[in-house]
């Protein structure tokens, strides 16, 4: 009973009068030959691992191998202790948590790939920050994560979620769409609104390349996690106001795939183009390789 498209998902939700997370639970329980409770517990374990990664990341300022990254999260925390962010507490927490997780990833800390390790900060930062500030229950956070999971899975049925296949569209881009879905679920949006939020987020990352400096999951990956976490909130807010994507979600996913195919291999996780080929990036590469030998 694989759900291959979002139109199938909507149809099923309407026919059975169910939420997306309920379909996700049923499908997963069927696949794993387990009860719904077992799947809920597994999802909770994933959620708790996400929270642990945020906690670990908030405490550390250990730099990365390039000596370029690892101390930005601390900068945010220090600043927000003194003066609040323009957009308020939720903005502060989302950006801080996204950087905390992405920095923890680069220093070989424990994180949850969601959908990939390079995009690990986006979904957790949105779910956890909003849950803390809006007093959203653990059950509802799990529902959000399940919603994100099914949304990401349907995209991955059409396009492999790897920078080498479709650029950063398929990593941080899809993570942002998943986070938009989770958030809209947690804020009480209906099925249409959840998938509109997904569509709006996904549509606005089309063409995003994967050009990591020196092939490391650092520049531009880490800060991109904070940007695309906030991007997810924009999508969710618009959808909850009734804004709709004129292009249906399934067609956006197809576009993402085709755009990935049209994208030069130089811009798909090979570090042969884009930011990876800037003068500064090449200088760093020389320095790193000299240190290594």
């Amino acid at each position: 009973m694989t759900i291959l498209s979002f139109s199938e998902l909507i149809e099923r939700c309407k026919k059975e009068n169910k939420r997306i997370y309920e379909i996700a639970l049923e499908e997963e329980a069927f696949l794993q030959a387990e009860t719904l409770d077992v799947i809920r517990i597994k999802t909770l374990e994933t959620l708790l691992a996400m929270k642990d990664a945020i906690k670990d990341g908030l405490k550390s300022s250990e730099k990365s191998i390039s000596n370029w990254c690892g101390d930005d999260c601390i900068k945010l925390q220090n600043k927000y202790k003194k003066t609040p962010a323009l957009f308020g507490k939720i903005f502060e927490k989302i950006t801080t948590y996204a950087l905390a997780t992405a920095e923890e990833n680069l220093r070989m800390g424990r994180i949850v790939a969601c959908p990939t390790a390079g995009s690990c900060g986006i979904v957790p930062s949105v779910i956890v920050a909003v849950a803390e500030e809006e007093n959203i229950s653990e059950t509802e956070q799990i529902n959000g994560l399940l919603t994100a999971g099914l949304v990401g899975l349907i995209v991955s049925n059409k396009v492999q979620l790897a920078g080498a296949v479709a650029g950063c569209q398929a990593e941080c881009g899809v993570a942002s769409a998943m986070a938009a879905a989770a958030l809209t679920q947690m804020l009480g949006g209906n099925v249409d609104e959840i998938l509109q939020a997904t569509a709006l987020a996904l549509k606005n990352i089309l063409g995003l390349t994967c050009d990591p400096v020196c092939g490391l999951v650092e520049v531009p990956c880490i800060k991109r996690n904070a940007f695309l976490a906030i991007h997810a909130v924009t999508a969710s807010e618009l959808a909850l106001c009734g804004v709709e994507s004129k292009i249906p979600l399934d067609e956006i996913v197809d576009t993402l795939k085709i755009t990935g195919q049209l994208m030069s291999p130089l811009l798909k996780e090979t570090s042969q183009g884009g930011l990876a080929k800037t003068k500064t990036a090449l200088d760093l590469e020389k320095k790193l390789f000299n240190n290594k030998q």
Binding site: G109, C114, N157
Partner: peptide, 24 residues
């Protein structure tokens, strides 16, 4: 088409920084 798990997109729990180059 073989059905995939939602945990293929919301996991693994792993040490970073790369699912292909570290976890793999």
């Amino acid at each position: 088409m073989e059905q995939k798990s939602i945990f293929s997109v919301i996991s693994p729990i792993m040490v970073g920084p790369s699912s292909s180059h570290t976890a793999g």
